[in-house]
Design a protein around this nucleic acid. Structure first.
Lengths: 221, 221
DNA sequence: ACGCGCTTGTGAACGCGCGCACAAAGTCAG
DNA sequence: CTGACTTTGTGCGCGCGTTCACAAGCGCGT
């Protein structure tokens, strides 16, 4: 078996969803470490930097076949390359953002995207008054231009009010987008072959509220 | 009244974390249903509206002792009251938001908060140029005023750049905040008695990128 | 009053993910 | 070259969460 075949086999290996969800975490910590000039790091130290258990970290990394050196640790640069590649961030990935309100602007300017190969390629909004405006180096286009900016493999991001989300979602699906990230507080329905993920900004806050409420019950004022 | 609440809380079993994370989801769906005039709903229909499995929904609801009626379903209004109370949203809950950039503004204007009893009480920023500005009905105050706006039970929200997050976090902890929600892409360290949760806007996008990348490997162009 | 059909609540089985603890493997000093 | 030390990679047991499937309960029509 050639090296290429081995690499291909590894790529086909199933990576647990829980591990995939942590890879971005590791990647962020690694970028920070690289900026500080660290070239090698132990699982213990990286786990500390990423805020996870070291055994879990090692098991996660073992899934992507990027081997560390026993007695030494992991090569930071190699690990960054490895994880970036696994996440599909090495080749430029087209991201189309719909909805240029405060949240859309925040996302467009979010440093975390560009620095990790996930630069946003297009900004769209239904409001004609916004068309032509420059935001984070991009020109806002009208939502009707959506089919023109979508390419195969594009990821759609919905940052519109909840009332417009399903409409925009349908437009994205119609244009051939099969991966959609929804920030609007609504449940969207999509065909089975479309990958839909959601982020609700208020959910975590409500969870905190729950725990805070619990504290006040256990130790009443 | 407080005595009754404590007794009720003690009588109830511990609510699994996974269930707590879904309660906000149900609450949102229920609000939508209530607005549409629905007064009663079956677990099947509510599960559909919230995007989860119906058996899971029933088990979740059983944890908070709010009983539905067999053969009929759940009373929407009663369920809203029940979940809101469990999440601690019935009594007003103080939220202090630090960092009034695009993300901070998006959060301040986020409808999902106010409508569910989680109105933001104070906006703070380190930039003196922003002090006094009106956003979403609130006046931005300087970060030095933090101790004055924090009350026991306050929840702190960090929407600053990553570089300032730990500093702001320490200020919040110093002011007595024990529940913190971090939107900055950094790992924060807090004392053990502080409840820290984080939201990274780019993580879900990277997970989508992973799956999109996988698709292209399975069915190459 | 009474059974029929609908819906809830839950017991039990399954599967996944986490973390401990240790063997394998590599480095480095002398 | 050898031996001691360091760190990785992983087998294993445990606990949580999800799902199926069904009995118990309630309303409604007759």
């Amino acid at each position: 078996m050639t090296t290429t075949e081995i690499a291909a086999a590894r790529r086909r290996e199933v990576i647990p969803e829980a591990t995939v969800a942590r890879l971005p975490l590791y990647l962020r910590a690694l970028h920070t470490l690289a900026d500080e000039g660290t070239s090698t790091i132990s699982s213990e130290a990286l786990a500390e930097a990423a805020g996870v258990n070291s055994a879990k970290l090692r098991k996660d990394l073992s899934h992507l076949g990027s081997y560390g050196t026993r007695g030494v640790g992991y090569d930071v640069a190699h690990l960054i390359t490895s994880i970036s590649h696994e996440l599909g961030l090495s080749r430029r990935c087209s991201v189309v953002l719909v909805g240029v309100g405060n949240l859309g602007r925040a996302l467009a300017g979010y440093g975390g995207f560009a620095s990790r190969g996930l630069a946003i390629d297009a900004l769209l909004d239904a409001d004609p008054a916004l068309t032509g405006e420059q935001i984070a180096g991009l020109t806002v286009r009208h939502i009707d231009d959506l089919p023109e900016v979508v390419v195969p493999g594009s990821i759609g991001v919905i940052a519109t009010p909840a009332s417009a989300a399903q409409l925009v979602c349908d437009l994205l699906v119609g244009a051939g987008v099969t991966s959609i990230l929804n920030f609007a507080p609504t449940v969207l329905s999509v065909p089975a072959d479309v990958d839909l993920r959601k982020v609700d900004l208020s959910i975590e806050l409500q969870i905190l509220s729950f725990h805070e409420h619990r504290k006040s019950l256990v130790t009443p004022a």
